[in-house]
Design a protein around this nucleic acid. Structure first.
Lengths: 162, 162
DNA sequence: ATGAATATGTTATATCGTAACAAGTCAAGG
DNA sequence: CCTTGACTTGTTACGATATAACATATTCAT
């Protein structure tokens, strides 16, 4: 756990995208009448501050440092809530969670995970999702949720490998 | 674990597809000089016989019934070998493994998981994979492997829900 | 105020996966 | 043959991830 990686490949102002995402998340919560309680809000902030995928126990450690109980359900409940409402994503390949950078916006993220530096990017996956919907429809399957994840080399690591 | 589900939605002759897949797997092993040792072969057969996704410990239990040691590495090593060489797939959403039904054939499976009956289907995902490749390429990411998984309702469960 | 729904605290345990090292097997070259 | 190196398997021990279950507290609508 704890790779030192940026969440997106292109360099950008983390502070800004963090604040933007948090503001968007708050807007979503207000609009949908969600209760963004202290643990939940803090959990989201932790994910945004880390700016990478964190395991539930990493989140739990950070929560514990701030006075919340160090019990797995504390972290899992908050994380599950965020995922359920589209404020965070679960990355199955990593058994980890990452804040959603575009909460409320229509988007089906495809996750790109760098095998080398563990950077994680949320790529626009609408076209991918449509292709998958079509494939499912052709066999009569009705999709509710999907995970699209890829492992490979991010631009920086690909270049340094060459 | 242990849902009673078919691997594909359309009814078909399980015995035939099992034998076909096993024969294909053996051909792949011969062609690539892989050592399909007893544990490995038996593990593949177990997955094929189950005809659904099995957790590593389910596989381990079955192996143990046949005289292999009941130690996690026994199952994980065999399963990892099969996955590595394309004879089985790992379904991350289920923390489970399923035999590949088309070993050796060019195919990027997209997995469709029924939330109701836990049936699992391997849908043709070439179009999906291409869309994902394109999305990745647009940000300079080089894909090595990918997981495409969807949860929803299979035809039978969708109909009975209506 | 009060009951229903929701959220949190807490204990315990289930489930999934791997590190590390010893021992055995097997095939190819000397 | 027989040795040597690569691969495979046996075995112990543990680490990492996740959830069940129940008690308590808070919040919301009426």
């Amino acid at each position: 756990m704890e790779p030192d990686a940026t969440l997106a490949f292109a360099s950008h102002d983390h502070a800004t995208c963090r604040e933007t995402a948090l503001a968007q998340a708050e807007a979503v919560a207000r609009a949908q009448g969600l209760r963004l309680t202290p643990v939940r809000r803090r959990t989201l902030e932790i994910l945004l501050e880390a700016h990478k995928a964190l395991g539930a126990y990493d989140v739990l450690d950070r929560l514990a440092e701030e006075g919340f109980a160090r019990q797995p359900p504390v972290a899992y409940r908050a994380l599950d809530f965020l995922v359920e409402h589209g404020l965070a994503h679960r990355i199955r390949r990593l058994n980890a969670f990452a804040a959603c950078l575009h909460p409320g916006e229509e988007h089906m993220p495809a996750f790109l995970i760098c095998a080398e530096c563990h950077a994680l990017a949320e790529a626009p996956g609408v076209a991918v999702a449509e292709a998958l919907q079509a494939a499912a429809a052709s066999v009569g399957f009705d999709i509710e949720r999907m995970n699209i994840e890829a492992v490979g080399l991010c631009p920086a690591c690909r270049d340094s490998a060459a």
